[in-house]
């Protein structure tokens, strides 16, 4: 039988969730036995080469590019999973949600102490190559349908392992309290 295929992406996140995935230690060898990876920063495959079974999304959407990537994942993955606080609720990046985009940009490029005296022409970056900020940071499920949510910041390696193996083996997820507690 063909191995199930996994794809992963980090949107507006810190890669911490991906680190946590690597944190399953030597079980990663088991995982590679079980699955193939397609588009993912782990193997640096940039474009979907095939349809995937599971997509793992870290981070929410703060740019138009995030939205395109997320929609691409939805189109290519049978099951899409929000992994971690940022994908589920917006996380730290969403702290800007109470502040207008203009104010954010002005603080970052005009008024912040590190740029105040260096941006003589008062330019807010506007090259067409640059992605565009969204009006606020959106959790993934506000953009596309998400099938599962794995909480944590980052989610515990055991949580990821248990969830993934359950999905791969078509079992009910067994997620005891220990893999959810964060203190």
């Amino acid at each position: 039988m063909e191995k199930p295929v996994i794809a992963t992406a980090s949107l507006a996140g810190c890669f911490g969730c991906h680190m946590s995935l690597l944190d399953i230690d030597e079980r990663i060898l088991d995982l590679i036995e079980l699955v193939d990876f397609n588009k993912s920063p782990i193997n640096d495959i940039k474009e979907f080469a095939r349809e995937c079974d599971i997509g793992l999304i870290e981070g929410g959407c703060c740019l138009d590019e995030n939205v395109h990537v997320l929609k691409d994942f939805r189109n290519h993955c049978r099951i899409l999973v929000s992994v971690g606080e940022c994908a589920i609720m917006g996380g730290l990046p969403a702290m800007r949600n109470g502040i207008s985009v203009r104010e954010c940009l002005e603080e970052a490029y005009l008024n912040g102490p590190s740029v105040r005296n260096y941006n003589e022409n008062k330019i807010l970056p506007n090259d067409e190559e640059l992605p565009v900020l969204l009006n606020r940071v959106y959790p993934c499920h506000e953009v596309v349908k998400i099938d599962y949510f794995l909480p944590g910041c980052p989610p515990d390696a055991d949580l990821l392992w248990r969830a993934l193996t359950a999905l791969l083996n078509n079992r009910k997820m067994d997620l005891p309290y220990e893999v959810f507690k964060f203190d």
Partner: peptide, 22 residues
């Protein structure tokens, strides 16, 4: 079957206006 109601045009309007793009 599913529509999140997300509107990319509307969501990017503010930044486009702020930076004067396009």
């Amino acid at each position: 079957r599913y529509d999140s109601g997300f509107d990319l045009t509307q969501a990017t309007q503010e930044a486009i206006a702020a930076t004067g793009r396009y």
